[in-house]
């Protein structure tokens, strides 16, 4: 039996585990469970200073640099959006590094 990769599986089960890791990070820091699509700041009431902690966490954990127009709150609103940002920057920034 082989486990089939289901391309329709929701982003929360992203094969690289970014969403799962971020949900764990959030739970560890806020002591409550989060959904991948919850707006952390509007619905979740997290502070803007916490947003900065998320930026630092993403940079350290995924070896990316978040700069310029990528550094805006909208990119950090939900776990899904953060994961998308991580994937995009990992791709472009590793491209850059390897020429």
């Amino acid at each position: 039996m082989t486990v089939q990769y289901n391309p329709e599986s929701p982003a929360s089960t992203g094969a690289d585990g970014v969403e799962a890791e971020l949900l764990g990070f959030l739970e560890g820091h806020t002591h409550s469970a989060w959904e991948p699509e919850t707006d952390l700041f509007q619905e979740g009431g997290l502070s803007s200073l916490f947003a900065m902690q998320l930026v630092v966490h993403l940079e350290k954990s995924y070896g990316i640099a978040i700069r310029g127009t990528d550094l805006r709150l909208d990119n950090f609103r939900t776990v899904t959006r953060m994961a998308a940002l991580v994937r995009r920057l990992r791709e472009t920034q590793s491209d850059g590094r390897h020429g």
């Binding site: 803007s48 200073l49 947003a51 900065m52 930026v55 127009t69 550094l71 805006r72 709150l73 950090f76």
Partner: peptide
């Protein structure tokens, strides 16, 4: 530089 990043994150600086 931390404060500048935070300000930018929060859209507090002129683009």
């Amino acid at each position: 530089s931390d404060e500048l990043r935070l300000a930018q994150l929060l859209g507090a600086l002129p683009p």
